[in-house]
Every structure is written in structure tokens, then in C-alpha cells.
Amino acid sequence: MAVADIQKYLRSNRLPHIWCPGCGNGIVLGGVLRGVDKLQLDPNKVVVVSGIGCSSRSAGYVDFNTLHTAHGRAIPFATGVKLARPDLTVIVITGDGDLAAIGGNHFIHAARRNMDLTVVVFNNSTYGMTSGQYSPLTPAGAIAATAPYGNLERAFDMGRLAEAAGATYVARSTTFHALQIPDLIVAAIQNKGFSLVEVIAGCPVYYGRMNKMSAPADMLKWQKENAVSVQQAGNMTPEQLKGKHIIGELFRRQAPEYTEEYGKLIQRFTQEKSRVS
């Protein structure tokens, strides 16, 4: 895909990026930037906060206010930024380990508060940066550097976790379905509240190689074959859905958003004050 349309959001002098050939991260980031572009957001008013991992390196490549924090902690930093400047659009870029393991607690609490953040998780089913150990999103049975005999743990369903925790917008896609990503990002940013967009991405170098999909195209094929749209999923039995990824807009609801609620609290006092004086 050409990058001319999103070139203006890239810090070209930071390129080439550190990602391996065939890595899915660039496709996800492209989708995020196309979503931002559709909304015509002022880059000065966009903050991108990331944790630590290959995916989290995205922050350094995009020309916004960018903050590359510590492993698992992007959401607390983003919460602080958003509360201090509710007028800014705050996007969190994170990996499956960053978000679902070390950052899991922050994730559910930000969702519960319905904090107005758009969290984009690059789910490559592994810890890419540290060379392919299993993450909470590694499928059961898959091979990883720390699961040489197959992963004994079951994976989280991040969408359902977000929904249960209180998120107000949840979507999923894959890098094979790259054309779908921008619209999901648009909806996520437009949602006044906590939004999760999970994008299944390939790490051919570790996850792929260890699981017989070492060519980047194998990973895309795997994504294609295992994804079912929300519409299709509606007609499938739980048995048929086993091991499949449902993609598209998964969930949406209305709920009070935290910074707005806090703003109302502040306003109550300023109004009281002006009545007194």
C-alpha cells in the first residue's frame, strides 16, 4: 500500500524503522494514521502514548505529541495526560504483552472508568521484542520460546474482557483486513469513552517461525482463514467459532465518560463560587 497519503504524519527522519521485514506493525500503524487522517485531527492536539515492545516503538515514528513510557504503563500515563488536558485526543499504542499481561490491571480500570482513550493493541500473539515468549494472547497449544512443548495457558479474549470491564467501544481486525482498520479507528476515536481496537498482526520472525508460518504471507493467510465477520459469526455455532477471530465492530454502548464527569464536578464548584461572589 502506498504511504503517500499518510506521509505527512510520519517523522521521515526517524526512518527506516526498527521492525523486521514482514512485520505486521507497519500495517497496523498505517491503519491508525489513515483513521486519524479521515478525522482531519490537528496533530498538535493528538497525543500518542505507548508502552514497551516492538509495537510500542510506533510512537517515535509519528509526528504528534508522543510518549514512549515503560512496559505495561502506557494507560496510566495516558490517563494523566487526558485528565490534565481533556481537549486532547489520546491514543494508546500497545502490544499484547504490554496491555494484557503487565498492563492488564490498568487496562480494566481505564475501561471501567470509561476514560476517553483509544487503545490500539497490536496483537501478534507473542512478545516480539524479547524474542517470542508466550503472552496472555498466545493461543493454547502454540509454541513459544518459553512454551517449547506448546502453550498450556488459555488466551484472553480482549474484546470480551474490555466489554465486561466497562469499555464503550470494542472492535477487532487483522493486518490482512487492513482496509477495514481506518474506519474502526475513526469510530474508536469518535466514541467519547474507552475504546479498544485489537488488530491481529504477524510476527513472522518469532511467532510465525515457531508455529510453521515463517513467511509473512503465511501469517496473513492464517489471519484470512481464521477471521469471521461479526455478521458471519451471528450464524455460527460456538463449536464452529472455536479458534476463530470475530472481526469488525464488536460492541458499543453509552456510559458516562470520566473526564466529562470530573469536568462537571469542577463546574459545580465554579458555579457555586460565582453565585457567592
Binding site: V47, V49, L67, T69, A70, R73, I75, P76, F77, A78, T79, G80, V81, K82, L83, A84, R85, L88, N105, H106, H109, Y262, L265, I266, R268, F269, T270
Partner: peptide, 28 residues
Amino acid sequence: PKVGGTFIQMEDEIASIGAILGASLAGR
């Protein structure tokens, strides 16, 4: 809130310091 400031009780102390660092970068 009476002076236009913000208080938040976070989910743990790691989140607390993360939030104050974020807020400080945003000028508070």
C-alpha cells in the same frame, strides 16, 4: 475540584505515578 484541579484514585501506586508523570507532561 474546588480550584479547578484534578484528583483521581488509581488502581495502584504504579498507575498513580504514571498518571502524575503524564499530567505533568501535559503541564500540570
